[in-house]
């Protein structure tokens, strides 16, 4: 078990700052997901914890100790790579016990560990196989077993599910949540997929351009986004954004917050538009509604609106978000909050 702390961490790459003066604390035993678009620096942070891509300046603390000078193999961390990075010339068993051998673990203990871990991930029948004969899902399990067998205090995962098919990915998500519950160790998980982030994380750290946009629990990050970027990154489909027309302020609402109807809706924000596209997803249906020059996504349980049909929508006051011209959230305590909201009345 271990907490991780970044103190004024900067990472330069070819004289460009990928990450600048970043501070972040990852609490002991949490499942923290670093999420963001590609190139936002999330993998860079993960590699700093592992020590395989050290920071240019600042310090990384594991359990309060500065590990800058500690070799990757001695930090008590294990990592699952995106492409698994399994040793291709070794059998599954050799892959799993390689780290143990390096750490001079005795043979009996080693065998026992390999047996129990491989049983836990369902690899017992494949121990003597070469990785090239395994499927993607099985390789993933080898990578996981190799990390687990070292009994690390921190688990690092770099988009481990991105090479799996959709069904297996959903299954592995559940497996990982369960694994975290069972082990209780600190998990740091990197992904660009906000669904993975939302479904697994205790804490989401949302990054963009090397800066932390928001660090919060999934519920909070969804319902109380700090800024426009967060609002538009989280949620499928993301938050609808429209121009208020005053001071460059923007307003937004979630696709599922809008009531839809054939007749005018009496809500704070109401408008009439025309349906442009329709995506039937099963339990719900996504509509794209054209209104003046903009388009809004709507999520509805009602599946029978047709393309080109005119509909009315209404959004209640407490489901409307406001952002200033910089993209920062305008909260209720802002002096002009109500005057901005008033503008929407006649939208």
């Amino acid at each position: 078990m271990a907490s991780i702390e970044f103190v004024n961490v900067t990472k330069e790459f070819e004289k460009k700052d990928i990450i600048k003066d970043l501070n972040l604390t990852i609490k002991d035993g949490t499942f923290t997901v670093l999420v963001g678009p590609s190139g936002c620096g999330k993998t860079t942070l993960l590699r700093m914890i592992a020590g395989i891509g050290p920071q240019s300046s600042g310090a990384v603390l594991i359990n309060g100790d500065d590990v800058t000078a500690v070799a990757p193999g001695k930090r008590g961390v294990a990592m699952v790579f995106q492409n698994y990075a399994i040793y291709p010339t070794m059998s599954v068993r050799e892959n799993i016990e390689f780290g143990l051998k390096n750490n001079k673990v005795k043979k009996e203990e080693r065998n026992q560990l390999v047996e129990s871990i491989s049983a836990a991930v369902g690899l017992t029948d494949y121990l003597d196989r070469k990785p090239s004969t395994l499927s993607g899902g099985q390789r993933q399990r080898v990578a996981l077993a190799r990390a687990m067998v070292k009994e690390p205090s921190v688990f690092l995962m770099d988009e481990p599910l991105s090479n799996l098919d959709a069904k297996l990915r959903a299954q592995m998500r559940l497996d990982l949540i369960e694994l975290h519950k069972k082990l209780g160790t600190t998990f740091v998980y990197v992904t660009h997929d906000q669904v993975e982030a939302m479904s697994m994380a205790d804490t989401i750290v949302l990054m963009n351009n090397g800066l932390i946009q928001q660090e919060a629990a999934p519920e909070e990050i969804y319902h109380e986004p700090n800024n426009l970027f967060v609002a538009q990154f989280i949620g499928t489909p993301p938050m609808n954004i429209g121009e208020l027309g005053v001071d460059g302020v923007k307003f937004g609402f979630r696709p599922e917050s809008a009531q839809t109807s054939d007749t005018p809706v009496d809500e704070y924000l109401s408008m009439e538009g025309e349906i442009a596209t329709r995506e039937m997803l099963g339990s719900e249906t996504l509509y794209q509604m054209k209104y003046k020059d903009s388009a809004f996504m709507l999520k509805s349980n009602y599946a029978f609106y047709k393309v080109n049909q005119k509909i009315h929508i209404g959004v209640p006051e407490d489901k409307i978000y406001l952002f200033d011209s910089e993209g920062t959230r305008i909260r209720k305590d802002h002096e002009r909050y109500s005057s901005y909201l008033e503008v929407l009345r006649g939208y």
Binding site: A85, Y87, R146
Partner: peptide, 26 residues
């Protein structure tokens, strides 16, 4: 793949062992 060397580093592998067990076989 450089990831394989990084994985070996995380597995606390000595340089000689990396050469003998990973580089040479590959």
């Amino acid at each position: 793949s450089p990831n394989i060397y990084e994985a070996a580093e995380l597995d606390n592998t000595s340089r000689f062992r990396v050469f003998r067990r990973i580089t040479l076989p590959l």
